[in-house]
Design a protein around this nucleic acid. Structure first.
Lengths: 246, 246
DNA sequence: TTTTGATAAATCATCGATTATTTGTCAAGC
DNA sequence: GCTTGACAAATAATCGATGATTTATCAAAA
């Protein structure tokens, strides 16, 4: 989960070459922790179908790991709301539903605007800078439905933008909860929304939120953010309806 | 771990007599799930000291279990915010601090009032009845500092009261988050607050909240609830300060 | 035909042992 | 004296095998 003295050995062992590969370790040392990331990505991206049961034997094979770290990773993923568990019946990918999407949207509206307000109240200049940087990166990242790798990249910077907005609030529990909601929300987008809706200029929305934020105009920024989240929810709801999901 | 169709069988099997003993199983069939409850209780009650490392060998012995279910139980407890984990360094009981308490108090104020408002908006008559029942039970449960078993009992019905208040909101994610915050808050109370503060009549506070709630007087009920949570926070903060906790 | 109950197969849960990592100890070198 | 590095002890992480429960199958009875 972190670097520490142990990794120094591997570092010095790989003195030369590019800086990146010196660390075989991305901070996730153990199999279980690596699995948490891999499983999370597999679920959010839709590779593991919503609502489906996770067969331990098969998962063990497909991820090429042993049972103990797999079970531990799944247990930790419960925190993220991405998997559910039942005694003697194992783990399953959390299902999707209209009501679930609606709750996620409501809670994002409430919590993220609250966290944004708090950030504007107590956030420092570093945080302001991070917001502007995240906005810039987001605006410079292309989102082309025909190129899947751009979609993934866009999802990453988009997520980063929303998290950076509220990262100044100094409330770790609130941040972790917002992160969870964002994960759940992103799964809906990545599963159901390949193209962006034509009647929205999402870039402008993001810019307005960021501008209002660094100007510490609480009501303006929070209103824009709330609208932004709400529009995304409405948009997603349509796509769920099209695919006949109740 | 749940009710569902399965439990209907056992339920009808226990027609006569007292409902309780028919089930050797409280819904927690596996060792891991039982451990989750036991560990949670041990942490909230303060038996496992805040911030302390959880040595797996020792825990294994003192709970008389094997390693696999212990690790799985601890992993699940991360969701509750009661334990933290770091690769290769294992699990530890989440530490307590003034800032942590303050965040919990703020978030309870925000989330519980939001959930209460939602409950008043969409809650049905059943829910109203549950609120009045929970209030009655709470008022009839004595809280005598000289008898530890009454404290435990009071904690249980008090927790139940607060959860019932917001149980009508039809937002499972929100409820689970409120539950988590309530757990964290209860640990502070059970660890630092043995006697109730003299200048408060907590019974009256609870009654006002409940009365306002079933009358669907949103502003009144939410204001009373917010004050109630805030007072508890202030009260606890004093006790932390006395014990020199920053 | 539908239900019931026994059996087999699949799957989940747990255990004990092994491996890898971290932490503690202490002597050699600076 | 302080740091460094080798070694040993403690601890965490993983594995493969075993035990327990659930699910699937199918024949006999209603």
């Amino acid at each position: 989960m972190r670097s520490g003295p142990g990794s120094l050995i591997s570092e010095s062992g790989a003195e030369a070459a590019t800086p990146a590969p010196s660390f075989p370790d991305d901070g996730k040392n153990t199999i279980a922790s690596q699995l948490v990331s891999r499983l999370r990505e597999a679920i959010i991206s839709g590779q593991l179908e919503a609502g489906s049961k996770i067969n331990l034997d098969r998962a063990k094979q497909s991820f090429n790991v042993s049972l103990s770290p797999l079970r531990e990773a799944l247990a930790r993923l419960i925190s993220d709301g991405l998997v559910e568990f039942e005694d003697n019946r194992g783990y399953r990918v959390s299902p999707v539903s209209l009501s679930n999407l609606e709750e996620i949207t409501s809670l994002r509206e409430e919590f993220e605007t609250y966290a944004l307000r708090e950030s504007m109240r107590v956030g420092d200049v570093d945080w302001e800078g991070n917001v502007m940087r995240a906005l810039h990166r987001l605006n410079r990242t292309e989102r082309d439905a025909s190129k899947p790798e751009t979609l993934e990249q866009w999802e990453a910077v988009h997520r980063e933008f929303h998290l950076t907005l509220i990262s100044g609030c100094r409330k770790p529990l609130l941040l972790s909860f917002c992160k969870t909601m964002l994960n759940l929300n992103d799964r809906y987008r990545r599963t159901f929304l390949t193209r962006t809706s034509g009647d929205r200029n999402v870039s402008v929305e993001h810019s307005e939120i960021a501008q209002g934020t660094v100007a510490r105009d609480m009501d303006y920024a929070c209103d824009r953010l709330r609208e932004h989240i709400h529009r995304t929810g409405t948009n997603l709801r349509k796509h769920l309806a099209e695919k006949g999901i109740a």
